[in-house]
Design a protein around this nucleic acid. Sequence first.
DNA 1: TTTTTATCGATAAATTTTTCTCGATTACAT
DNA 2: ATGTAATCGAGAAAAATTTATCGATAAAAA
Lengths: 223, 223
Amino acid sequence: MINKPEFSIPEPTLRRLPRYYNYLKELLKSGREIVSCTHIGKDLDLDPPQIRKDLAYTGIRGVPKVGYQIEVLLNSIEEFFGWNNMDEAFLVGVGNMGRALIDYQGFRRYGFKIVAAFDNSPDIIGKTFGGVEVLPLSKLTNLCSRMNIKIGVITTPDHAAQEAADMMIAGGIIGIWNFAPAEIRTPEGVIVQNENLATGLAVLSKKLQILKQSGKFRQEVDQ
Amino acid sequence: MINKPEFSIPEPTLRRLPRYYNYLKELLKSGREIVSCTHIGKDLDLDPPQIRKDLAYTGIRGVPKVGYQIEVLLNSIEEFFGWNNMDEAFLVGVGNMGRALIDYQGFRRYGFKIVAAFDNSPDIIGKTFGGVEVLPLSKLTNLCSRMNIKIGVITTPDHAAQEAADMMIAGGIIGIWNFAPAEIRTPEGVIVQNENLATGLAVLSKKLQILKQSGKFRQEVDQ
DNA sequence: TTTTTATCGATAAATTTTTCTCGATTACAT
DNA sequence: ATGTAATCGAGAAAAATTTATCGATAAAAA
């Protein structure tokens, strides 16, 4: 049903790697220089062999009895994801979520930068948030092609999501990060990453429900 | 390494269900009353048997040749997650992400409501966002117990996350939805749901990278 | 009424992902 | 120098998840 690239990386691995990355950044800041999978496993509550396997996907090799040099490991992950070549993106829908993403400087770390925002509310067009100007939606498609932007972020209400996507795609965008709780139809060759905040909440609330019902158990959960 | 409850539901299923839920809400709004897995599968690009299996976890049964009544299906999912009993939550860290979550009314749909926010910046203590007052952090623990709050949301900078968690846990919170890019250590019996926005971005950027390298393929991706 | 078709539920097969095992390597202690 | 312990990598085994198959059921068509 879904075409996969030749050498596919397990999606769970793909989802764990950013977690390692954040954790390793913290660790490096705390003064540590070398770390083993055993050590990581203890802190992240994961099995060492799995961590080893995940990290191996980025092409790194560890040293027996020692582990990995954290700095090299961080570079390896950065390179794996391509976080070295900065990706510029447009954002549509300057509500609270949109502003949160614009202001969140943390994305720079991941080679990701929102360079312009679009909305069709006259109240906010022309205003600037976190150094990013809000432009009228009508300019979206044209600017996409002119600036050769390939990634779009949708933070509109759900009823406006499809239109935003259509305009993006018309402008040549091939990757859409969709925060609107709506399904977006796209032609082939466009990748949609649906980011439904409710998913995390749902998983959490279900686990709590089970916890309440059936005694105590410990569980750490991601994303 | 991780204890699981007796009857565990596959996590992928848990993550797909909210997506079905949103989709079905849309569908119902558009006038449809009955839907089959085949139909859902076409729209969501998933295999019908998988959808059937996922939905079966909520306890619903379909009718051959017909499918499911959308309204009944929605109820079934709501009940499965316990979205009928509203869960009240506290939020710590009233930055942009915090405000985005406070203002996002959409969570009501999932039986989730942020009833108070905490921060230790004098600039915002006392202010109100989306009807939610910002209180000083020092009141967190005490209010947690007094109001019997069980869910906490952390949207602080990473260095403040552990402290926020500790205060929450001291107040009796057992479920933490953590948006800070930091690992939180918790005692047994506390569930942490790490919500790392960068994960979605990482997955998207990796897929784009592969797409650019190896010709075209279509892919829809979630969370 | 009978036949055809779509869809379901249940189960089996295939695939993917995680976990385990084991020999090899390196640091540290003796 | 030699032995011991920690950790790695690679591959095997186990577990979980997805996909396919098949008989049953209900609606629609003949």
